[in-house]
Computed example of a mutant assay.
Amino acid sequence: MAAHDYPLIYLEAKMKSAELFAGCGGLALGLSHAGFKHSYLVEFNKEAVSTVLHNKHKGVAHIRDWPMHLQDVRDIDWRSLGALDLVSGGPPCQPFGIGGKKLGQNDQRDMWPEAIRAIRETKPRFFLFENVRNIAGPRFRPYLDWIIAHLARPDIAREASESHDEHRVRLLGSGSAEDYSVIWQLVNAADFGAAQIRHRVLIFGVRKDQGVYPSPMPATHSRDKLLWDQYVSGIYWDRHGLKKRYTATMQQDQVRVDRLRYLGVEPAGLPWVTLRDALKGLGEPNGQRNHVLQPGAKIYPGHTGSLLDLPAKALKAGDHGVPGGENMMVRDDGSVRYFTTREAARLVGLPDDYEFPGAWSVSMRQLGNAVPSELGAVSGQWLKQQIGSPKSVASMRRVA
């Protein structure tokens, strides 16, 4: 066979991406796993940037290749980055969170206009943004509607004297074609393989010239499959070398378990990842590599900790209420203790060689703000499936 007759093998080209508000890297790591190559990562928090750079210098997989920048997004000329496949990020959620003053778009920390400017200046093939689910609630839903309308037509900027509602009406009535097809979706990170119950709003956008309208992302994991494994087949307990037991939530799940037994059909997909699953093999705190005991955990009303046989409650950044928020586990004997930084990192989907050089409180704040990497990975793969992965001529090779 002549060389020119060899069949072509197309190697998938890495998609070029940039991320705003990268934090300690949860979303960025997930997108790296999904095959994206970050050409620019930016974060304003010094401790988070220090954490990423610490792991970059350590040579941690994926992180070692990240071009991480300590910078205010308002100072960036996004046009200088050139062509991008993806822009991603999680604008600060504090203006829209359950705690705090709930000032929304009137909070100086609201960076949604900057996220939209990044889309306007880079015009990527697609984008992915995330935020707290409260932004989809009654108080902030009009602002979410403005965000969606503006992302669809990012070139039509809001005038200084124009309210967000007035601008949204102008956007929708402009008669100009949309630049992006945009949808938003409320998700639970546990439904996508994360070991924590974390409800978020995801916003997907695809440039119109791609000829694709994005559809909602289907769940990959479920509570029903976990209940099946625990109370029908029992393989969950076998996997952990434990006798079958009933969890503290079994009473509220009894109707669902009875229904599963009655139907006798194993649910499709994968089971929720429990706290016990996520921490398997780690053992009790040993003082090594961020696995350090943090004393002082206690139960009181509204602060009860995470059960081992369910996904953990959402990690808290600790900005409101008690330090560490709900960041503790309930052990088999009923005692409680705070998560170590290492354990919390596992709940975010960070590898065990990813280290946090700062204090526990500083590290937990970063982890509480992080997007679980599993959610980022599934979201990235979903976008690629929607639009199709480009094949690079430069990456083609021939095989005999």
Rank of each mutant, 00 (worst) to 15 (best):
S306K: 00
S306T: 01
S306D: 00
L307D: 09
L307W: 03
L308Q: 11
D309F: 09
D309P: 10
D309G: 07
L310K: 12
L310G: 03
P311H: 00
A312M: 05
A312R: 12
A312S: 12
A314P: 11
L315Q: 07
A317D: 11
D319L: 08
H320I: 10
G321W: 08
G321Q: 10
V322Q: 06
V322A: 13
V322L: 11
P323Q: 14
P323V: 12
P323T: 12
P323I: 12
G324L: 09
G324K: 07
G325T: 14
G325S: 03
G325Y: 06
E326V: 07
E326K: 01
N327T: 09
N327S: 05
M328V: 10
M329E: 14
V330Q: 04
V330K: 13
V330Y: 04
R331C: 14
D332H: 14
D333F: 13
D333Q: 02
G334W: 12
G334Q: 15
S335F: 08
V336G: 14
Y338N: 10
Y338T: 11
F339R: 08
T340E: 13
T340H: 09
T340S: 10
T340V: 11
T341R: 04
T341P: 00
T341H: 06
R342K: 15
E343Q: 14
A344R: 00
A345H: 00
A345T: 03
A345C: 06
R346D: 12
L347K: 05
L347C: 06
V348S: 15
G349K: 06
L350R: 01
P351S: 05
D353S: 13
Y354I: 11
Y354V: 06
Y354S: 05
Y354C: 08
Y354F: 13
E355Y: 11
E355I: 10
E355L: 13
F356H: 12
F356S: 13
F356C: 04
A359L: 15
A359M: 07
A359N: 10
W360E: 00
W360T: 01
S361P: 00
V362N: 12
V362P: 00
S363R: 01
S363A: 07
S363I: 03
M364H: 06
Q366H: 02
Q366C: 00
L367C: 07
L367R: 02
L367V: 07
G368R: 00
G368N: 11
G368S: 06
N369R: 01
N369M: 05
A370E: 01
P372R: 14
S373A: 15
L375T: 15
L375W: 08
A377Q: 09
A377F: 10
A377G: 14
V378L: 11
V378Q: 01
S379T: 10
S379N: 07
S379R: 04
G380R: 04
Q381P: 00
Q381F: 03
W382R: 02
W382Q: 07
L383D: 07
L383N: 04
K384R: 14
K384C: 12
K384Y: 04
K384M: 12
